[in-house]
């Protein structure tokens, strides 16, 4: 995948497919340490120890539609090749947490790419999921809570008016990676 935001989208898809109702996504760039942190937490169905041990194996998947599961292994290899680290904690019935830290000056690390489009797509196509999103870069912090957005508007979060508003807000605030 050519963009880091596509890897993030792919990992968040796992939370969605695990029937999470709440998903927390944090992307934080620490300029002093030169580290990019990516944290994804969900309250989905979680994984057993046996599945967790196999999660970095591309020839393992819990799905029945195909025989490979590439999302986590691709992300893991990318971070590992840059000297970073991925930690995954999960508990059946409680959820999963993925914590990754990677040196952002690594030449093998793809650019962040279209993060605003990634977040827009996630929010609008999953109106029943509450997303808490925290983006910290260059001293700026952007927080998005879809629970709060839903509470403050009386039209669906996937209606054309809200798509328009979110698009403008995300494009203005999530550029410059």
């Amino acid at each position: 995948m050519k963009e880091l935001s596509l890897h993030i989208l792919d990992i968040v898809q796992n939370s969605i497919e695990a029937n999470a109702k709440n998903i927390y996504l944090e992307i934080r760039k620490d300029l002093q340490k030169g580290i990019l942190y990516i944290i994804i937490k969900d309250d989905g169905k979680g994984m057993s120890k046996e599945i967790l041990e196999e999660i970095k194996n591309p020839f393992f998947t819990s799905r029945t539609t195909r025989k490979v599961g590439l999302g986590v292994p691709l992300f893991y290899e990318l971070v590992k090749n840059c000297g970073g680290e991925v930690k995954i904690n999960s508990e059946v019935g409680k959820g999963t947490e993925i914590y990754a830290e990677v040196p952002f000056l690594c030449v093998d690390l793809p650019p962040m790419g279209n993060l605003s489009g990634t977040i827009l797509g996630l929010i609008v196509t999953n109106p029943d999921i509450d997303f808490e999103i925290k983006i910290v870069k260059n001293g700026d912090e952007v927080n998005i809570s879809t629970k709060e957005i839903k509470r403050s508007i009386d039209i669906p979060i996937n209606s054309p008016e809200v798509i328009s508003f979110l698009k403008e807000f995300l494009n203005e605030n999530l550029g410059g990676w």
């Binding site: 792919d10 898809q13 599961g69 489009g117 609008v124 698009k167």
Partner: peptide, 21 residues
């Protein structure tokens, strides 16, 4: 899925949202 995303599904989705808007 991973295959869809790698093949460009996000851009497809964004085009659909753009048309809806």
């Amino acid at each position: 899925g991973t295959c869809g995303i790698a093949a460009g599904a996000r851009e497809t989705l964004l085009a659909i949202l753009d048309e809806i808007e």
